[in-house]
Write a protein that binds this DNA or RNA. Structure first.
Lengths: 225, 225
DNA sequence: ACAATAGTGTCTCTTAGACAATATCGA
DNA sequence: TCGATATTGTCTAAGAGACACTATTGT
């Protein structure tokens, strides 16, 4: 019967730090794999969680101190072998969060590990991380996803760098700006520029209102572009 | 605890019939919604199913008499409200199957319903169907997915028609052939052509070996229902 | 003025679609 | 031969990338 199934949620929290993509790991505080670094996750609490997405948001809130990031379902990983306790099922999500948010979360237990350099993790978490990277990279080339790795405001050269870090290759500047223009998801902040350096300052941009993810976790699944 | 969670698998079985996309529905033989048309699906059996994909394949085999179709995970739908019995979770898959295979399966209970014309189904099955259609159409424009709706052999004009039915709009013939050529997933069958009509016969093609999925029907008589 | 980076104009090359010419069947 | 559809050739338009030019800051 289905009562034997271990139902959990895991989150691949991706962020930028030192110009490279990192995944957030936490030491597990229960067996199995107590003390070992793993993805933030845990059992679904039917009494507490509206659905699995709410459960994922709870994991991020409780374990990483992060609220309302870009959060999207990645897939469900299941089977007899992945958890030593028995037949289990993990509904996995990935989240994109600006580096500053993670650093400000003040959860000292968080370890930011190079996302491409994950060799082994407990359960099938390494496989989940790889699936998340594949998904994010596939979607990045034609969508607005990477903006969620930036802060509230950013310049176009900064945003381009984020795309380049994700995709792992340089992007044509003119094409990039054309694409951003077509997507119509950004708006310049009137009068705001990033100055301070000995060169021409760059215009600051922000996400247009309807694409911003604030404290409402209700509307989901929409990916502009 | 997680033991309260109802874990099931549902399958959106898509096929072509009468030049339009259909979804396979079955009358439920248990409460809730006994006798109502719904997606083929059921509880995960941890003792029997290697993982959720195996469970989905089992549903197709037992309930629709179809083996080894194109099968891909769609997503997991969850929450308190979707099943009157309590907090539930459905790992959903979609399958693409040639029309002939469905017709030959000889499961009289199967109803082929116009896929775009699904207004209400039990649980959140209508939402699941809509998600499947979105996914299939998104992937169809740049991938080889639709070939799995064709039989073992087909002509390029036939395949183009399948793409056009899926996408709902005519495709440029030259572009279509160029794209198929670039994808390098098809091979002409030497000497085989689709003749019989009063016009030039079309070359028959098949999927190249490495892309083929063995499509077969289950032996009749095995029907644990 | 100079160094350095932001932002733009334009050219070329690649690719997608329109159009039409040619090919091959049964009647 | 004719009617019908398959297949291919080629022209044109749209889009992506390369390149270089202009713009604006601090020193």
């Amino acid at each position: 019967m289905s009562s034997k199934i271990i139902c959990s949620v895991d989150v691949v929290l991706l962020t930028l730090s030192n110009s490279s993509l990192k995944v957030a790991l936490l030491e597990r505080d229960h067996d199995p794999f107590r003390g070992v670094l793993a993805l933030p996750g845990g059992f679904i609490h039917p009494d507490e969680d509206q659905d699995t997405e709410a459960a994922a948001a709870r994991m991020l809130r409780d374990k990483a101190g992060i609220q309302s990031p870009y959060l999207e379902q990645l897939g469900t990983f299941s089977g007899r072998g992945r958890d030593p306790r028995g037949w289990s099922l993990s509904v996995s999500y990935y989240a994109l969060v600006p580096g500053a948010v993670v650093q400000a979360s003040e959860r000292p237990g968080i370890v930011l590990h190079p996302a491409d350099d994950v060799d082994w993790l407990p359960f099938d978490h390494a496989q989940i991380v790889r699936a998340a990277l594949t998904r994010v990279r596939d979607k990045s080339s034609y969508s607005s996803l990477p903006v969620y790795l930036c802060g509230d405001t950013f310049t176009l050269p900064e945003l381009q760098t984020v795309y380049e870090i994700l995709l792992g290759e340089p992007i044509n500047k003119v094409s990039f700006r054309r694409k951003m223009d077509e997507l119509e998801i950004l708006e310049p902040i009137p009068g705001a520029q990033k100055a301070g350096k000995a060169h021409r300052p760059a215009q600051l941009y922000r996400l247009r209102k309807q694409f911003r993810r604030k404290l409402s976790l209700t509307d989901r699944g929409i990916n502009p572009g």
